[in-house]
């Protein structure tokens, strides 16, 4: 599918900072690598569930190359740097649309995670998806709270050891 320009948008943060939100592009690989390598070990751990080393070029390229249909990545840019990213991917095995998002450490706690979440949910709905799933570490209270306060309907929650699987209707 072609790059969906319609999903480009601007976002004004509470402190007045202007962010540009848009789908990721293959040429963003360098920006994605910088973003990933800037994350603290804890933020990476909460995202991937194991400690992670520096980003490998092939992995970053893969992250930046999506079909905008079964996979979507929205990046939030501030002064030409990625400060947050949200993605969903269709999981053919589990038959579910899985969500993930990450915000640069110094941008956390400002509401960007919630804004990115709302925006990617809107896009998923427009793409006719009806349900979404997120896997969250039990200790990641922030992520869980974003889902709780943002989703109007019921959250279906199941526990897998220290992981919480949250599923909700879109």
């Amino acid at each position: 599918m072609e790059y969906p320009k319609k999903y480009e948008t601007h976002l004004t943060m509470k402190d007045g900072k202007e962010l540009f939100l848009r789908p990721v592009l293959p040429e963003d690989a360098g920006l994605v690598k910088d973003f990933y390598d800037s994350l603290s070990e804890r933020t990476k751990y909460l995202r991937f569930f194991i400690p992670k080393k520096e980003a490998r070029t092939d992995r970053v390229q893969k992250f930046a190359t999506v079909d905008y249909e079964k996979s979507m990545v929205i990046v939030a840019l501030y002064q030409d740097a990625i400060v947050g990213a949200a993605r969903y991917d269709w999981d053919d095995n589990e038959k579910c649309l899985e969500l993930a998002e990450t915000v640069r450490d110094n941008w956390q706690g400002k509401g960007l995670g919630t804004d990115l979440f709302r925006y990617i949910v809107k896009i998923a709905k427009e793409n006719k998806y009806t349900e979404m799933t997120a896997l969250i570490l039990d200790e990641n209270k922030n992520a869980f709270n974003i889902l709780k306060k943002t989703i109007p309907g019921d959250l279906k929650i199941s526990y897998e050891g220290n992981l919480i699987r949250v599923t909700f209707a879109l």
Partner: peptide
Amino acid sequence: SLPKSAVGKILRK
């Protein structure tokens, strides 16, 4: 490779 979810999270389970 380690088993991962669709978005790349490690599935220890």
